[in-house]
């Protein structure tokens, strides 16, 4: 049975369900349940739900150690940027230990963080830095854009035997959507076609999925039918789904909240160029954040971000339609 709940509630539902299901799931992080009255503490006890100091390197490294010793920790990192404080543990320890041990050990950890909080949080709390983790063999990266995926991808992340960066989007936390009750898993590496169309493929991630769907509505009024694809996980990436859509439409626009050269859009475009060049009837277009740190002031912030109009304009360009004045 599905019912409508907010994205953030869906996230917590997955965590609670998986903690009930598997007593090796441990959850901790900064400001996680400081009160003993917290429902998670009441349900699972202080051993499994802990509040930790502001020590990202220790928090993330300890999660890896817990995992090596048989647990499945979920570390709450609040903001994706806080992972940057502990880059060695995120990039150079957790994803490499299994490989370097010749497969003897495994590191089932979830690094849970929010990102993209472009709501006046200025330069250090608004980044879309997921792409820097996609190029790290051994790490998986999940970016849910809907409440149902928020639940299903977290459950899958917790059950995965690899370190997973699970990034929620802060601008989506109160968005409502249908979410199945009880156990619910969304497989990794399986894209979701959010809207079908025959004229142009729009690959969008996270918050830009909604923007792409809005753009598709604008385009539909002009007779352009866009197909919107949400990869849901960037590592692994469902390249076949993207290629088969591009084969059908012959046109590709990629929307991404990250800056251009640090975007998932750029590496997906490269994959399509290598594997789907023959399907393309026009060059691809990337709609990304402009190359700037996110500014505080609202008009400047809006200016650097992708939106539905920029996505629609890009789609018009690749299909050869006349641009529409904003």
């Amino acid at each position: 049975m599905a019912r409508e709940i907010p994205y953030i509630v869906a996230v917590n539902e997955a965590l609670q369900f998986e903690m009930e299901r598997d007593e090796t799931v441990v959850f901790y992080g900064q400001d996680v349940a400081p009160s003993d009255e917290d429902p998670l503490v009441k349900a699972f006890g202080r051993d499994r739900v802990r509040v930790s100091p502001i020590s990202e390197t220790a928090e993330i490294g300890m999660a890896t150690g817990l995992a090596l010793a048989g647990f499945r920790p979920v570390v709450e990192l609040l903001m994706a940027e806080f992972m940057l404080v502990a880059m060695n543990q995120v990039v150079n320890e957790a994803p490499r230990l299994r490989y370097m041990s010749g497969g003897q050990v495994k590191v089932p950890v979830v690094f849970k963080a929010g990102y993209g909080f472009t709501a006046g949080w200025a330069g250090q709390h608004t980044g879309s830095i997921y792409n820097m983790f996609c190029g790290i063999p051994g790490l998986k990266v999940a970016l849910p854009s809907t409440p149902a995926d928020a639940k299903g991808l977290l459950a899958t992340a917790i059950r995965d035997d690899n370190p997973v960066c699970y990034f929620i989007h802060y601008l989506l936390v109160l968005e409502h959507g249908d979410v199945p009750e009880g156990e619910y898993l969304v497989p990794f590496g399986e894209a979701s076609v959010r809207r079908t169309g025959s004229d142009v493929t729009i690959v969008a991630t996270g918050w830009t999925v909604g923007k792409a769907l809005q753009a598709a509505e604008l385009l539909a009024q002009e007779g352009i039918e866009a197909e919107v694809i949400d990869p849901r996980t960037l590592q692994p990436l469902d390249l076949p789904a993207i290629l088969s859509s591009v084969e059908k439409t012959g046109h590709l626009v990629l929307a991404d909240q990250a800056t251009r050269h640090a975007s998932a859009a750029s590496f997906i475009a490269a994959e399509v160029a290598e594997h789907g060049f023959g399907y393309l009837k026009a060059p691809v277009k990337l709609v990304t954040a402009l190359d700037a740190t996110i500014p505080y002031s609202q008009p400047m912030e809006a200016y650097v971000l992708p939106d539905e109009h920029k996505i629609a304009d890009a789609a018009r360009q690749v299909v050869g339609a006349a641009p529409v004045a904003a």
Partner: peptide, 30 residues
């Protein structure tokens, strides 16, 4: 977030700086 702001509206509350008075800035990260 205004143009007459100390940092032109780029930084906001967390990122004030006034190097001329010796205040070289802040970090938003603990």
């Amino acid at each position: 977030g205004r143009t007459d702001g100390l940092c032109g509206g780029y930084g906001g509350s967390m990122h004030l700086a006034d190097p001329g008075r010796g205040f070289l800035g802040t970090s938003g990260i603990v």
